[in-house]
Simulated scan of single mutants.
Amino acid sequence: MADKKQGIDQTLIRDLANILNETDLTEIEVEQDDLRIRVSRAGTPQYVSAPVPAVAAPVAAVSVAAPAAETARTNKNAVTAPMVGTAYLAAAPGARPFVEVGATVTEGQTILIIEAMKTMNQIPAPRSGKVVEILVEDAAPVEYGEPLIVIE
């Protein structure tokens, strides 16, 4: 590793944090020789337990500060996923999206579809307003409670 006094390679942790930011992952874990590192966007560090070899391997957990765009994801005006599935921004591939940034939506208007267990579930706007940000990519997997679209 880089420097035995530091114990872990700080460059590796920075590289992993950059991967999180670039790919919009919530966590990433790597294992190299006797070292296992997990970098997570979670608010509190998560510690990994590993089988203890004859010589204990260093285990590190790092909490990555959220980028500026992450602030929008915690916005109270964000529409969150009501289920786990795959989000689709349009009714069919190549079709026009249900909503675009800057569009005005009315309460009950379909803003996207989440496919769950081979069922297409239309997700309605919970309120009328202007779409200020779309936080998911078309055909991206989403988790329950994940922010999808910000409507103000």
Rank of each mutant, 00 (worst) to 15 (best):
P147T: 10
G129M: 09
D34S: 14
I19Y: 08
A78L: 11
T71M: 09
A68M: 10
Q32T: 14
A139N: 15
A95G: 12
M120H: 10
E107I: 01
P93E: 04
D15S: 05
L12N: 00
P93R: 03
Y47T: 08
R41W: 12
K130M: 02
P97W: 09
P97V: 04
R96G: 01
V132I: 15
R73I: 06
E27C: 02
G43H: 04
V142S: 01
L148A: 06
P97G: 02
K130Q: 10
Q32P: 04
K4G: 03
T26A: 04
D138Q: 11
A42S: 15
P45Q: 09
L35Q: 10
L148P: 02
A72N: 07
P141E: 15
V131C: 08
I28L: 10
A2Y: 14
V79P: 02
M83K: 07
E22A: 05
V62A: 13
P93M: 05
T119I: 15
A91Y: 11
G43F: 09
R14C: 01
T106N: 14
G94P: 06
A42G: 09
I151R: 05
M83A: 03
V142T: 04
F98P: 07
R41H: 10
Q122V: 07
T110H: 10
G108D: 08
K118D: 12
L12Q: 10
L89T: 05
A42D: 13
S128N: 06
L135H: 00
E100G: 14
E143H: 10
V55G: 06
F98R: 12
L35G: 01
P45A: 06
P53H: 07
E137L: 12
V136S: 00
G145W: 00
A78W: 05
A140K: 06
T23D: 05
A92F: 02
A81S: 15
I8D: 03
V39Q: 06
D15W: 02
L112E: 03
E31H: 09
N77Y: 05
V62Y: 07
I111T: 10
L148D: 07
A91E: 15
Q6V: 14
V150E: 10
V48D: 09
V84W: 04
P97D: 05
L25H: 02
D24R: 14
E70L: 03
I111W: 08
V30W: 00
F98N: 02
G129Q: 01
E70S: 15
I149T: 10
E137K: 13
A65W: 06
N21L: 00
E107Y: 09
N21H: 04
A125P: 06
K5E: 08
T80W: 00
P67H: 11
R38Y: 04
A91I: 11
A81M: 06
V30T: 09
E107S: 12
P82N: 03
T110I: 15
P124L: 03
A78V: 13
Q109H: 00
A87H: 05
L12Y: 07
I8K: 07
R14T: 03
D138N: 15
I113S: 02
Q46W: 03
S49G: 06
G129I: 03
M120I: 08
V79I: 15
I111S: 10
